[in-house]
Computed example of a mutant assay.
Amino acid sequence: MEKITIIGGGSWGSAIANSLAEKGEDACLYIMEKQQYDLVVKTKTNPQYLKDFTFSNHLKFSNDFNKSVGEATVLIIAVPTNAVRSVLEQIKELNVSPRTLVNLAKGLEQNTHLRISEIANEILPEFPFVALNGPSHAEEVAKNLPTTLVACSENHSEAVKIEKLFSTETLRIYYQDDLVGVEMGAALKNIIALAAGLTDGLQFGDNTKAALMTRGIHEITKLGIQMGAKPQTFLGLTGIGDLIVTCTSLHSRNRNFGYLIGQGKSVEEAMKIVDMVVEGYKTTKSAYELSQEVGVEMPITEKLYDVLYKGEDPKIAVMELMTRRSKHENEGINDIS
């Protein structure tokens, strides 16, 4: 049996750890903050991140990073994108033998614009890497509602191993090998979800959201292909699937953050109200900068960047999107493929 350590006691790390423990796997949830750790151990709840939820009695907990990592054969990274590098560097400092890394974060690193697998390859190149992504909210996985995910790795045997390890009666895992496509889709959909929430805040309606999501997957695909992804990946779970759930669900932090911006809240006010990490905010900046570097036109991302980072009025941004030059619907995709 694998010994699994989940690093990160947020909503997603908690839900995944609990799912593994309920299945009977040897799982340990590492929680960095001592106060949170003490509360979880005492009450078997994690109210800051998951409401009306109780951890399985089979799940172990730890506040000792060195021990948690040292004993594991599979390490699940369940921290925000901006914390991934520091966690991987801590693992490297322990000088442990290679073990499977499974990443749950969805984003691009600030400044470098690197995908998580690229960061891992830079710091821990000997560790097999698997991205586990797909249309999933922790709140629903915690309730054992039917969910599908994709285990993606350039190492086929590792992807299959994680597929088998995580699969349950309510959690179906597919395996994939297009790491660029899976990671790009998972990261960029947060931008479109944020924009979808913004249109809800502006009370623009279903027509607007349908257009936004459709054109959103178009520009996600354009940048993804430019970076080396396979076009068909964006038609799957980590593309259109993840986009649908994140743009439409009330569980979505990105959608909720965008909604507050659409209602006139400042970035600071919206962050305070959501009170959890909103990956789409930083990913908007990273994706905008990356698109400029590689010469891919991403109008939704660009206008959202103007709203979030330059203070442009959301209504003006939408008007500018609606009055752009006429073009063929598939422009950009055909050019690349």
Rank of each mutant, 00 (worst) to 15 (best):
H137D: 04
G10P: 02
A229W: 00
C152K: 07
E122T: 13
G262K: 04
V150Q: 00
T45A: 12
M184F: 12
S68A: 14
A151Y: 02
I91F: 10
G311C: 13
A138R: 00
M271S: 15
E331A: 12
S97Y: 12
V102N: 00
A151W: 00
A287L: 02
M276V: 10
P98W: 04
S136G: 03
N256C: 06
F166T: 07
G264Y: 00
V69P: 09
Q35T: 11
I7W: 10
Q263R: 07
K23S: 08
K189P: 07
D313A: 11
G216F: 08
H137T: 01
V180H: 03
S56R: 10
K23V: 12
T238H: 01
L145H: 03
L243V: 00
S291M: 06
G107P: 01
N57K: 15
S86H: 15
N155F: 10
I300H: 05
F257P: 00
N46M: 01
E22Y: 08
F129M: 09
G241R: 05
D52F: 13
Y259V: 00
E89R: 14
I6D: 09
T170K: 15
D275I: 09
G13F: 10
Y49S: 10
L202Y: 14
D313Y: 09
G197I: 08
A287K: 09
P135H: 00
A159F: 04
K106R: 04
F65R: 07
E126T: 14
S286G: 03
E118H: 08
H58T: 15
V182M: 08
S11N: 13
I7F: 08
M298R: 05
L223A: 06
V40W: 07
E22C: 13
V96S: 13
K209W: 05
L101Y: 09
S117V: 03
Q90W: 12
H218S: 01
E269G: 09
N190P: 03
T168I: 06
I77D: 11
E183Y: 05
I225K: 11
I116H: 10
E158Y: 04
I91W: 11
S56T: 08
Q292P: 03
T148V: 10
N82Y: 14
T323D: 11
E320P: 06
V245A: 02
E169V: 07
K143R: 14
L20D: 00
L237K: 04
Y309C: 14
T199L: 15
A83L: 11
F65A: 07
E169P: 06
L101D: 00
N190G: 04
F166V: 07
K106N: 05
E25A: 14
P314E: 11
K51E: 14
S286C: 08
H218N: 03
I6L: 13
G70V: 04
T54R: 15
T221I: 08
I119V: 14
L124H: 07
M227N: 06
N121R: 15
K285S: 07
E331I: 11
I217L: 11
T5Q: 00
L114A: 09
T170N: 13
A211W: 11
S153Y: 02
G224Q: 01
